[in-house]
Each structure stands twice: as C-alpha cells, then as structure tokens.
Amino acid sequence: MPLPNDEKLIALSEEILKEFEKVFGPHPGFRPAHAKGTMLTGRFTPSNEATSLTRAQHATQASTPVTVRFSNSTGIPLLPDNDANADPRGIAIRFNLAEHVHTDIVAHSANGFPATDGAGFLEFLRAVTQEDKAKVQEFVGSHPKALAFVQSITPMPVSFAQERYFGLTAMKFTNKDGVTRFGRYTIVPEAGEEHLSADAAAGKDANYLFDEFTERIGKGPVKFKITVQVAEDGDVINDATVHWPADRKVVELGTIELTQPVAADAREQKQIIFDPIPRLDGIEPSEDPLLELRAAVYLISGRKRRSAPEPTE
C-alpha cells in the first residue's frame, strides 16, 4: 500500500494524527483510534448473489480465509469497554486472497460520519477536544453532519457479535459482464443485534466485550452476513454523510464465519495495516475524498506503530 503522491493530503493526515495524540495521548505501538482490539480468523463464503454484483476473487471462489479485528473507539489501549467514549465500535475484515495479496473492509457501528472530507474531520476533532463542554455542544449543534454522526451512535452492545457495522464510503462494484454499480457495505450479525441500557452498561466490567467474545468463540463459530446496499442513478456516491433511501436494493455478498483467535494477537495487531481502498479487480473505490485520506492516515500511523517496541502478550 503506497502513500499517495499528494503533499497536501499527507500534511493533512499528519495534522489529524497530531490531533488524535492531543486527545488520547501518545501510545507507541497502538492505533491512534480504535486502539483496543482483538483479532480472529475464519472463512468467507460468497452467496449465490455475489457474482451478480462483482467479479472480485473472493466473490467467485468457493471460500476465502479472513482475519477480522474488532475494536473500541479512541486511541486509549486500556479504555474500559463500558466507557461512553468506547462507541462507536469498529470492525476490519481482511480477505486473504494469496500470499501477500489481500483486500479489506473497514467499518464501524455508527451509520454516519461527522464530515464529508478531511478538512471537515480535522475541524470536528479540534472542536471536540476542547475542555469547555459548552463549546463542544455549540459546535455539534451548529454543524448538522457532526450532529447526525453523534445521534447515529448506538448504545453499548451486549457483544461484538451482536452489533451491526457500516462501511460508510461507497465502492464501485463490477461483475463479469462489465455491469458497474456503486454500493455500501453493512456487516450484519447472525445472532441479531442487542444493546445494553445505561444502567446495565454501568454494571459491566472494563473488559466485558473482550471476555464475552472469548467465551462465545469457545462455544462455536461467530457469523456475520456482508451485504451491499446498491445505489440508483442520482444517489450521492462521494459523500459518506449522505444516506441513500432505505428502499434501495440490498445484495447479500456472503457470510463470514469466525472460529478462533489469532495467535500472538498483540504482535499481529501491531503489524497489520488495514486499507480502506479495495485495490482489486471487481471492486474499486468511489471518488469519496475520505478514502484516500483514511488510507494515508492508516499507512502513516501503521508504519509508526510497527517501529515501536514489541508489545507484551
């Protein structure tokens, strides 16, 4: 994954990373956001519908091994799972297509994003880091996209396995006949969604999600459906803050079945750098400006993370 040849984009990415560090502090070896996480392995099996949408390798072969990371929000590695700042939760899915060949999906549990582009996101970060809560509320109240994002954050989940995740940026899908459509991912839990009341969440311990997931995966596979909501002509495809009508067609891409934790989890989390840009035949990025920005932020921060001292298990 190369850095883009765009000095302004790289400078903006560095500014965003500096702002994350101001908020959460320096934590070498960890992500600047979604620092606390866990990884599992399993397989993806495409649905019968998948090839109608895309000719991508993992949609056309019988199955593909996957590596999946679940995470809390913020850049604080020891943030309690029941801290209000731990939402939205994150999921990142890597389809391992061959040795050193992969494609990823990155999503989170809020069906929204606070800004259309990188400059707007940096403005949001600077606003919410203020110690004056009244000024934070004033900013959110006067910026409709930021307000919509805050309102889209769901209550704390019972389990990572009972949360829905949204890939906010549109992708361009092309099938074997050359038919192209734009779509957005949603990752749907087979076990159904379930969230906690504020009182129930307050009674949970600091690692309740990670402990619950360890127990759950020990009893059997955890499954998610990957679906794609397909845009129609005239739908906005380059702005993650704009929702498409609920009546748009949804195609089931396939099922992820997770079976076991990743060995040497802390070390592997440090090394892996997920890429929000698909970079394979059959699925391409849209012109959403957040994609190149996120890819640059992930790569720059990932290289710094890899150069930090090894974490202890």
Rank of each mutant, 00 (worst) to 15 (best):
L12P: 00
A98C: 04
I272R: 14
A266L: 11
A59I: 15
G254D: 07
G167P: 11
P26I: 02
P309Q: 08
G167T: 05
D239A: 04
A148R: 04
S152W: 15
V236E: 14
F95W: 05
A170M: 10
P285G: 00
P88V: 01
W244M: 05
R31F: 06
S307Q: 14
S63K: 05
V136H: 10
G302H: 11
S63P: 13
P32Q: 11
I10R: 12
M171K: 11
F210A: 03
S109A: 05
V250S: 02
D281T: 15
M1P: 14
T116F: 00
S47T: 10
T67N: 13
F95P: 07
A246S: 09
K18P: 00
G75Q: 05
E313A: 03
L79I: 15
F124V: 09
P65G: 09
A170S: 14
M156G: 09
E14A: 01
L3K: 04
A84E: 15
L97I: 12
K8R: 14
K133L: 15
S73N: 15
N5I: 11
L12S: 00
Y165R: 03
A11F: 13
R89W: 11
A263L: 13
G183A: 05
S63Y: 08
K219T: 03
L40F: 12
A206T: 05
D132Y: 05
K145W: 05
G282E: 07
A296F: 10
Q137L: 12
H58C: 12
G183E: 08
R294H: 10
A240Q: 09
N82M: 07
E123C: 02
P80N: 12
A161P: 03
Y208S: 02
H243D: 08
L9W: 06
F182M: 05
R164L: 06
V236N: 09
G29V: 10
A308C: 11
T312R: 12
N96D: 14
G234R: 00
A240S: 08
G183K: 02
E193P: 00
N72G: 14
I187A: 03
